[in-house]
Design a binder for these strands. Structure first.
Lengths: 220, 220
DNA sequence: GCCTGTGAATGATTTCACAGCA
DNA sequence: TGCTGTGAAATCATTCACAGGC
């Protein structure tokens, strides 16, 4: 029994979701900010993104037919389409755990709220911090995690605690029902059910170090 | 003419350098911090890193033979070895461009200096900021970029300017001789010769959004 | 003629599976 | 016996190349 028509459900590679669709969306937003463009071709996008046009067409093809042959893509429509695929037509609520230097910087990072990701609660286990106000939020104790995650309809956790605490915190978030975590702690965490994305700028510097070393001193 | 012995120069996949070696190193450092371990097997490392033991052995094999059959790896030696491969036995000097909210947070992020990456100069093009002191550095104007990069022996640039400025700034850094850049601006930049690593937490949240949407509401 | 969408071909990465050393 | 190091096999991702619609 075939499903009506072209429903060619091929497996979408993880890397398409985890890296490229968001970058395509970002490039299109950038295009729109500067004078809006009507149409855009896979060739033009490829140049903006340092990849091949075929890759872009293939990536889009997992989700349907977005373009017009001979014409390219309607930039405005494509952007809407990508936002829809990624589930960005709503606001996502987030909880921050760890209100140290890094945590505070995250609370004040404006792009999250601009992009529809709102930090609605902040937690810490330091009695000296609990009850204090930071960036319009009152810091809560870790014992209130589950309560607030349910009450405030929180879907995403942000971890900004020292590495020694991070695994524990991630387990608490999972226990409280969180299914998606942005982890700033420098560890590779183990999760039972939640999906994690890690951010560690030091790892990136270390790989830059390798390449700098490889190419040796500038002259001589 | 064969090079003496085992110099099996196979191409090392980029992903080994750009993602995994630094993570292996991070896991070993974490091991060492908690009670030091003598030996560690590829199985144990694989569990810590959520990957297969064969992958770890293959990755190490690009750089030589680190382990002892039947015994595993000497954790201490392995860590030294990785630090050497990545070029982390020295200090790297960095210049920050963009002293806004994000730039200040980067200046205050302690892990950079702890890991051997030192921010030795900060630049901005805002006259109101130039000359001010931030985190022990005096903010310089962009016109002094080249001078300071040479004088202070800077190898890595950090970009923390608004997206509209980022491409320009990256080109200035390249002109000043910088070959490695850590880019926090939400764009995909074009470079002529420098290697870039991008950091954009919003991209990660957007891909989490996709997966949250896919799995639908918790019950019902 | 231009540019998409897509099977087929190629290329890259990961896993398998096992020989061989401690 | 236990675990590494590694070719060979399997899997996964990207590019090629072109049929077909605008």
């Amino acid at each position: 029994m075939t499903r009506a028509g072209k429903n060619t459900t091929k497996k979408i590679p993880d890397i398409v979701i985890q890296e490229r669709l968001p970058k395509y969306l970002r490039a299109l937003s950038r295009l729109q900010e500067n004078g809006a463009v009507e149409g855009v071709s896979s060739d033009e996008l490829a140049k903006m993104l340092n990849c091949s046009p075929a890759l872009i067409r293939k990536d889009f093809s997992y989700f349907g037919r977005f373009g017009k042959q001979g014409r390219g893509y309607d930039a405005r429509k494509l952007l809407e389409r990508l936002r829809h695929i990624l589930g960005l037509e709503r606001q996502w609520n987030m909880a921050l755990v760890g209100v140290g230097g890094l945590g505070r910087a995250i609370l004040e990072y404006k792009r999250f709220i601009n992009q529809g990701f709102k930090i609605v609660a902040a937690f810490d286990n330091d009695p000296a911090k609990i009850g204090k106000r930071v960036a319009k939020l009152t810091v809560k104790g870790m014992n209130q995690l589950m309560e607030h995650i349910q009450k405030e309809n929180i879907q995403i956790g942000i971890v900004a605690v020292p590495p020694s605490e991070a695994q524990k915190v991630i387990e608490s978030l999972e226990k409280a029902g969180i299914k998606a975590i942005l982890n700033y702690a420098p560890i590779t965490p183990r999760t039972s059910s939640a999906l994690i994305m890690d951010i560690d700028p030091v790892l990136k510097l270390q790989s830059l170090s390798y390449f700098l070393k490889e190419m040796g001193p500038p002259n001589k």
